[in-house]
Write a protein that binds this DNA or RNA. Structure first.
Length: 777
DNA sequence: CGCTCATAAT
């Protein structure tokens, strides 16, 4: 602290203003005390007097000034020698302890204060409470407070504020209640502090009561208090109340506007947020860097780049473009809107890269990976994010919960188990695993990598579970074909009081479908509507149809489709067609195919399914009809891609890929495995070729090797003998590969996991967890 | 002379 006055003052000060101390707030009528305003100019403060005392006319240390302590150390020395210090000096001495956070000095002073009986003095005792609180010694402060012979509202307030600053809002509220019970009137200071406590507690109930006191004492319409209230309601999740509180502020300032705009962002009402931002501009309130950052974030949420660019120009106009949060928000906007090169340029230009910058970059790539239309983009976004995370670690900054949850989601998408496990270790070391979002992301990562046991362990060890964590684990069990566990977990979830959503029910119904549990499926299907008021959507019907198809009950499946109150989509018809092909009911299959073609589907997988069905039935006329349709509809060639993650690298394969250095070895191994498989009864399916080459005609026969085979072979050659093989494939596996890989798992005694665009296949000892029925091509 | 207040980016 720069200019603390020295205390070359003595008892004369006391005489100058003998009554000053009697003007404590409690002696004033409450309304007057509550009239909130900046402190009026202090009549003549000690510092002014001190400044005069220290003027050149009265140089320090001149012989006629008695030696008085200038700072705490000197005061302590004087006390040690058995001398006394004027009681009036204790407050500024304690203030020094507050500024320097020197608890030991304060304790020495405290001891002397008790000895001399100065504790009776309300100023001194309040300062003591304050000093303990500022030094983090909440227990000391409380003990002292309880022993005080006298307290006034300022002492109470010091205690409450202290608890708020020491992250004990619960204690703050408790003390506030004791205060009310003891009949003392709170002041604006007190209520402001309690409001902060409510904010920290996310307690709308107590917040509303404090709001009541504020109305009673007429400080609700104060701008700062109104802003606080608005922020409190927003934090507690009530946007409606937040907006009301905002509207009740008579003199709205830029903070009021920013608070309400960011509240809209936090609560997801982007439309209202943007409307308020425009309203603010039209009322000629100048936005600051906070407002603009919030506005950018809103544009980001609606992915409106053109509006975002306008806000970007506002940033330049108002001179905020170099503000770090603003720059981060601009970068994130371009990233989220898919302008990856522009985002990258902004990123490279930044001279200060904060953790949030890294996190934004990683989260942006995670989102691009998940929403990518094509697998190449997904793959590149994922690997780029992994690189970023590596750089973040090397930069010396410590990843936080945002970094971890994003990067774990990247590992899920890439099925990068080894990287995921390393990050798991890092979350333990850093303590962020205790965060519910991070631990949920971890459960999800293990599930998506096919490690159901590790996922279960991570799930069991969670200290808290949300709807998302439950749903993730239920879906995990379901995808692994562990129907009973999935359903048991769903019942546990209901008992825990967590409310399932649409996605949860997709997990439950697909578990029933997988296990062929018709009665349970119908029971949960009805429960969803009747007990939870969730209307079934296409995915739910797909589960039910899938179930009947698996059981070979094609008529029941069709009957269920007819019950739907909306038109079946591509997925539903595809499931029916795949089922008809499997169970040899071709008449229904042809009917479904006609309905499917009426929808003019865009996805190549759908056409491959149809072609395969007609080829199986040797309906060559229909084969050429579909081929022609594909040409007319400009359906491009199939792009068959797979990848495998080994150590910190990800290897990418196309169908019939021969570009890898180990190609010769790979093909040799592949052919030998296929030969052995044929010896064990493997019969290649006659399917349509899925050609990767741009101009090559699709042809029959099995000369082309699909990408997942190559990725699996690459893994078998390059990974440890006992390691599981994990492969990601961009489209649905075909029957031929599915059958071949079953034999591979038997022949090599390896666990092979293939995650395709529809489901997870876990091959062990010649069996697949999908139950051999999938909407396989 | 002691207690106090609000806004942003992942």
């Amino acid at each position: 602290m720069a200019s603390l006055p020295s205390f070359a003052v003595n008892a004369t000060l006391h005489k100058l203003d003998p009554d000053a101390r009697k003007l404590s707030p409690t002696s004033l009528p409450i309304e007057k005390s509550l009239a909130y305003q900046r402190s009026p100019p202090i009549p003549e403060s000690s510092s002014e007097i001190l400044a005069r005392e220290r003027s050149p006319l009265r140089p320090e240390n001149s012989s006629d000034v008695l030696p008085q302590p200038l700072d705490v150390q000197e005061a302590i020395d004087i006390l040690r020698e058995g001398n006394r210090v004027e009681s009036v000096l204790y407050v500024p001495l304690l203030q020094q302890c507050i500024d320097n956070r020197t608890l030991p000095d304060a304790e020495i002073l405290h001891a002397h204060i008790i000895k001399t009986g100065t504790r009776e003095d309300l100023f001194v005792s309040t300062s003591l409470v304050n000093v303990y609180m500022k030094c983090g010694a909440t227990g000391h402060a409380r003990k002292l407070f309880d022993k005080l012979p006298h307290r006034n509202i300022v002492t109470w307030t010091a205690l409450i504020t202290g608890y708020v600053h020491n992250s004990r809002p619960d204690c703050a509220v408790e003390v506030f209640i004791q205060l009310l019970e003891s009949g003392v009137y709170p002041t604006n200071y007190t209520l402001g502090a309690v409001l902060s406590a409510c904010c920290a507690l996310y307690s709308i109930e107590i917040g509303e009561q404090v709001h009541g006191y504020m109305i009673k004492y007429g400080i609700e319409s104060n701008t700062s208090m109104g802003n606080s209230l608005c922020s409190l309601y927003s934090k507690c999740g009530s946007l409606e109340s937040a907006v009301k509180a905002f509207q009740r502020i008579p003199d709205k300032n830029v903070i009021s506007w920013t608070t309400v705009i960011s509240a809209c962002g936090d609560q997801g009402d982007t439309e209202l947020g943007l409307r308020l931002f425009i309203e603010m501009l039209s009322e000629n309130v100048e936005p600051n860097e906070y407002t603009l950052t919030s506005a950018l974030s809103l544009c980001c949420m609606v992915q409106d780049l053109s509006l975002g660019k306008q806000v970007h120009s506002f940033c330049i106009k108002f001179g905020c473009e170099f503000n770090v949060p603003v720059k981060n928000a601009i970068m994130y906007l371009y990233l989220k809107c898919g302008e990856i090169n522009e985002a990258r340029r902004l990123f490279d230009e930044m001279e200060t890269v904060s953790l949030i910058t890294w996190n934004a970059m990683i989260a942006g790539h995670a989102q691009m990976m998940n929403s990518a239309k094509d697998d190449v983009t997904a793959y590149h976004s994922g690997t780029e994010a992994l690189r970023m995370f590596l750089k973040l670690n090397r930069s010396g900054m410590k990843p936080d919960l945002f970094s971890f949850s994003s990067i774990l989601s990247i590992c899920s998408g890439l099925v990068a188990l080894e990287q995921g496990e390393q990050i798991h270790a890092q979350t333990i070391k850093s303590g962020f695993l205790s965060d519910v979002v991070v631990s949920s992301a971890l459960v999800n990562m293990y599930n998506k990598c096919g490690c159901i046991e590790k996922a279960t362990k991570a799930f069991v060890e969670m200290s808290r579970r949300t709807m998302i964590s439950w749903t993730s684990m239920i879906t995990g069990y379901s995808q692994h074909g562990r129907s009973r566990e999935a359903i048991q977990l769903f019942e546990d979830m209901r008992l825990s009081g967590s409310r399932p959503n649409q996605v949860t029910f997709v997990g439950v119904l697909s578990a029933c479908s997988h296990g062929g549990m018709v009665d349970k499926a119908e029971y949960y299907f009805n429960m969803m509507k009747n007990e939870y008021g969730i209307e079934p959507v296409m995915d739910h019907y797909a589960c039910m149809v899938d179930m009947f198809v698996r059981l070979g009950r094609l008529e029941d499946a069709f009957a269920f489709v007819k019950k739907m109150h909306f038109e079946p989509n591509e997925i539903i018809w595809s499931i029916l067609i795949a089922g008809c092909r499997s169970h040899g009911n071709m008449e229904l299959g042809f009917y479904a195919a006609e309905r499917l073609l009426e929808l003019k589907p865009r996805g190549i997988e759908t056409y491959v399914l149809l072609l395969n069905m007609y080829i199986s039935a040797e309906r060559w006329h229909d084969v050429s009809r579909v081929r022609k349709l594909m040409k007319d509809e400009k359906i491009g060639n199939m792009r068959d891609r797979s990848w495998i993650s080994i150590k910190d690298k990800i290897y990418y394969f196309r169908a019939d890929d021969r570009t890898h250095t180990q190609s010769a070895e790979m093909y040799e191994f592949l052919e030998s495995l296929l030969e052995k498989a044929k010896g064990l009864g493997y019969v290649p399916y006659k399917s349509v070729e899925i050609s990767d080459d741009e101009d090559e005609e699709k042809k029959f026969g099995s000369t082309i090797h699909h990408s997942e085979r190559l990725a699996i072979i690459f893994g078998l050659i390059n990974m440890a003998e006992d390691a599981s093989i994990r492969v990601v494939k961009n489209i649905t596996m075909c029957r031929d590969c599915h059958s071949a890989v079953k034999f591979f798992s038997l022949l090599t005694k390896r666990e092979i996991i293939v995650r395709d665009s529809k489901r997870l296949h876990k091959f062990i000892d010649g069996q697949c967890s999908c139950g051999d029925f999938g909407a396989l091509l």
